[in-house]
């Protein structure tokens, strides 16, 4: 899944960042790297942008950018069980 699909309050681990050049640099500088845990904090009134907690800071990203970040959702042990 990509970061824009992650629900509010959910956490995920970054797998790959697909953006390129200057934009990729900006993402990396913010600390969005493979292995980084991110959490969706809230969405703006019109649904875009969405704010994420990244390395203790809250950063708002527009949808097009979040779509370029591949993540894997983190589940707690209980959730894993209930999902089978």
């Amino acid at each position: 899944m990509t970061l824009n699909q992650l629900g509010v309050g959910r956490k995920a681990t970054v797998k790959k960042v697909y953006s390129e050049s200057a934009e990729r640099r900006r993402m990396l500088d913010l600390g969005i790297l493979p292995g980084t845990v991110v959490e969706t904090v809230m969405s703006s009134p019109l649904g875009d942008p969405v704010a994420y907690r990244i390395r203790s800071a809250v950063v708002a990203l527009r949808r097009e950018q979040a779509e370029l970040i591949e993540v894997q959702e983190n589940f707690t042990a209980d959730e894993m069980e209930s999902r089978g």
Binding site: E23, R26, P49, V58, V59, A60, R62, E64, Q65
Partner: peptide, 11 residues
């Protein structure tokens, strides 16, 4: 097109 942006929301 609008270019990308990131906005930090300080505490």
């Amino acid at each position: 097109e609008a270019s990308s942006f990131s906005l930090e929301l300080p505490p």
